[in-house]
Design a protein around this nucleic acid. Structure first.
Lengths: 194, 194
DNA sequence: AAAGTTTGTTGATTTTTGTCAATAAAAAAA
DNA sequence: TTTTTTTATTGACAAAAATCAACAAACTTT
């Protein structure tokens, strides 16, 4: 499990880790298995951990007054799951995060992450890079959501994250794209317009 | 001009700046005035500077194949303008950024920002905090865009950034919310539904 | 002041998307 | 295996929002 995380950190921070640093990483991350539908986080809780997904798939969603789920994020291998806002501010989250497939993760608490960032420069670097990337990806998604029609949003997803499509059922993908499963189904059968 | 930036950095990083640090900040930021409609960035260019807005208002938008503008971001005093993706990766931007009002800014280049982060810890800290905040704000906006109806999105904006509403005309606000100016006008006159 | 531009509203109509319902195939559980 | 649950499709209809168009008020600019 850990080798995958080490490799991920080295590749994404472009820094080589020495033995001591690897040791520190081993000591700060907790391995955990989530069964399908098991929660990493529920609405109202403070997000205590961010989780590196070694294997599997998770989803982050809100539930509205009518009980409808709205998928705000999907993640699979080599992504991070967690509610950044709740984790950072230590405030109750507005989101649920659960395992869509049986999922193996390596989790780290806020305190441990702060310590890690102090003792392993690559980790601090990585944290910064991830924040940047997330901000970039989210701005693109906002642009897509406010500018494009349903079929254009699907086309964008197929281009940006094709790996999501076979991993999640259509009603999840539809929600992620901000449309109903029926609309997604119709778009797919019609074939994409320009 | 600079005092406002100094104050901003101290307040947002919760660190007091000494004279040397203040001196460094003076030396790394370039003051500039943008007249209404003048561009900070145009599509296809690499974003060379991020700009701290001392006074005024700017907007960031994309233009689609039909020539329609889609506002992805608005900013006023004590906000930062710039295309994070283009600035970070040094790739051509897909966005325009221009001044909506005559605007005074303090700009910093990527090299200078890297230097500044090295010599002024508060600046590095601030940069991290801003990335975090942006990621948080954008996730909320994605959630809003995919989950809520037009009137709910307006209600959310009125709650989150009420200062935007008197600063920009309705067609700009409408675009920011992902709806047409006509729809926004009707929502406003009807009064908000639950 | 006159002319032009920008902004905001309203109405009529069309398009897009959502809702509700029925159904069937596929997958998971018993 | 049979039964139940999940997933996907399709049709009829309703609702939301976009489009097109006309118009007027509020500005700039000349």
């Amino acid at each position: 499990m850990y080798e995958q995380l080490i490799k991920y950190i080295e590749q994404n921070s472009a820094v080589h880790l020495n033995k001591d640093e690897i040791e520190i990483i081993y000591n700060n991350f907790i391995p955990k298995k989530f069964r399908r539908r098991q929660f990493l986080l529920q609405e109202g809780e403070v997000c205590k951990y961010v989780a590196f997904i070694v294997k599997g798939a998770m989803r982050q969603y809100s539930i509205d007054e009518k009980g409808k789920e709205h998928i705000v994020g999907l993640c699979i291998e080599n992504w991070w799951a967690g509610d950044r806002e709740s984790f950072t501010k230590e405030t109750p989250s507005g989101y649920f995060i659960d395992a869509w497939e049986n999922t193996d993760v390596l989790m780290i608490s806020k305190n441990n992450l702060v310590n890690l960032a102090k003792s392993v420069p690559a980790a601090a670097e990585l944290s910064k890079i991830l924040d940047e990337r997330q901000a970039i990806a989210l701005l693109r998604r906002v642009n897509s959501a406010i500018s494009y029609s349903a079929d254009q949003r699907l086309a964008e997803l197929e281009k940006t994250y094709p790996e999501f499509l076979p991993r999640f059922p259509q009603h999840i993908i539809a929600s992620y794209l901000g449309m109903t499963k029926e609309t997604l189904s119709r778009i797919r059968s019609t074939g994409l317009k320009k």
